[in-house]
Simulated assay, not measured.
Amino acid sequence: MTAPHQPHEPHEPEAFRTALRAWLDENDLSPGDDHSLQGQMAQFARVQRALYDAGWSRYGWPEHAGGLGGPPILRAIVGEEVVGRRLAEPGPYSMLEVLAPTMIDYAPTDLAAEMVPRLLSGEEQWCQGFSEPGSGSDLASLTTRAVRDGDRWIINGQKVWTSFAQYSHRCILLTRTGDADTPNHEAITAFFVDTDTPGITVRPLQTMHGVDEFCEVYFDDVAVESTRMLGRPGDGWQLAMDLLPFERSTCFWQRIAYLYSRFDALIGEVKADGQAVDADLGAAYLALHTLRCRSRATQHRLAEGHRLGADTSIDKVLLAGAEQQLYDAARNLMPGTIELEDTDWRTEYLYSRAATIYGGTAEVQRNIIARRLLDLGKE
């Protein structure tokens, strides 16, 4: 790996992007032939290690957590360039962008300083233990329980839809700690749990698009030290509310770059078949461009120090719509490909059907927009 082309003003976004592109042009981080999920995870770790050693993946993160400072938009630029070049897939990247800020904000300072560099450098992968079989969109009803036992907490329960749990070294886990009289939102506490702790069982789930990205995770008398609590007892709900906007801000930048790369690939296939660029592609491009403009505004609000909240539900609705519109266009323009051929287009089309479900359903997001942004009430 060559030394980075450090920009004269490392925190200025355009200079940063120009220098990063030059470095990526000189350093071959292309993925190998293993396109399995395990291969994708290994490739992501490889890319992160190279970016970390050269300094790129440390920009946009605070120095007390192993970063090099600068606005969060710098790390959005890194993700956009890396995923846009198809050097890494957006899924693993999203865990980094969601969980590292949470650790920095809620973990004890020494724990964050020790652990965050392991995630940024690709040394470790983490997962997010939120959803349960009976608590998906209604997160406040979760039942996984943590009971104090001296200086430890004993955890029992089950999580589901836990992305990449089978490859993860740690889990940011939500549990119930209050008594029967404690309101749901005040009874939730978060822990940072090592996934090799005795009593944890991980079972991958294969989805209809043929990838075992999601997992069930069981906790049977799992002992966690009190020093691994994130925040204080009862802070779990606020942690979750602070985490969710990160799912819809910086990490979206990578997914948008990925969708643009697939849009370009679709144009190439359509032209190769001798078809004209039609209204389906125009509508897909408009949806992508609208999403990117909205997400760009969100990146700048984050860079300016604004605290993100319910407004990011708009970003989530736009992402789900743009993703499904792109793959609907692919299905319409390449008749039979998705239905009859075992290609990436088929896998990605099937995955796109979940875009209005994962990360908060479209119905829930629209309710949030109506009630909290438009003040339309509950009816």
Rank of each mutant, 00 (worst) to 15 (best):
M1L: 12
H5M: 13
Q6F: 13
E9N: 15
E12P: 09
A19V: 09
D25S: 13
S30N: 07
G32I: 12
G39M: 05
Q40T: 00
R46I: 08
R46T: 15
R46G: 10
V47M: 06
R49P: 04
R49Q: 15
W56G: 09
W61M: 07
A65M: 12
L68Y: 15
P71K: 08
I77T: 12
G79H: 10
V82A: 12
R85S: 11
P90V: 09
P90Q: 14
Y93D: 12
A100R: 09
P101T: 11
T102V: 11
T102A: 06
M103W: 01
D105K: 10
R118Y: 02
Q125A: 06
G129S: 08
A140N: 00
T143N: 08
V147C: 01
R148Y: 07
R152H: 13
I154F: 05
G157S: 14
A165P: 07
H169T: 09
L173V: 10
T182K: 01
N184M: 03
N184I: 00
E186L: 15
A187D: 07
F191D: 13
F191V: 04
D194A: 15
P198I: 07
T201D: 02
P204E: 11
Q206K: 02
V211S: 03
D212T: 07
M229Q: 05
G234E: 07
G236F: 04
P245R: 13
R248H: 10
C251H: 14
Y260W: 10
Y260L: 08
A265W: 04
V270P: 05
K271M: 08
A272R: 15
D273T: 01
D280T: 06
C293A: 08
R294W: 05
S295F: 02
A297E: 06
V317R: 12
E323R: 12
L326A: 04
A330D: 02
T337P: 05
E339V: 02
D344M: 00
R346A: 05
S352F: 06
S352N: 03
R353D: 01
I357S: 00
Y358T: 00
T361Y: 02
V364K: 05
Q365R: 12
E379T: 04
